[in-house]
Amino acid sequence: MVADMVDAGSFDRLSNRYRVSGVPMTVVNGKAQVTGAVPEAHLMRTVRQALGA
């Protein structure tokens, strides 16, 4: 498991790929994403969605 904090301004290509428009935005395995400081349960739904779990 790898957890990155990404400075969106310095990583513009990565930010463009995921169309980052608001922060914080969390991307999981490049497949699912959620914007905002969401509650843990919401984030875990996104993680499960990305993993197909």
């Binding site: 790898v2 930010s15 995921y18 999981v28 395995n29």
Partner: peptide, 10 residues
């Protein structure tokens, strides 16, 4: 593998 990327701005 699980890769979380949290995009932030200063």
């Amino acid at each position: 593998p699980l890769h979380l990327q949290v995009f932030v701005t200063p």
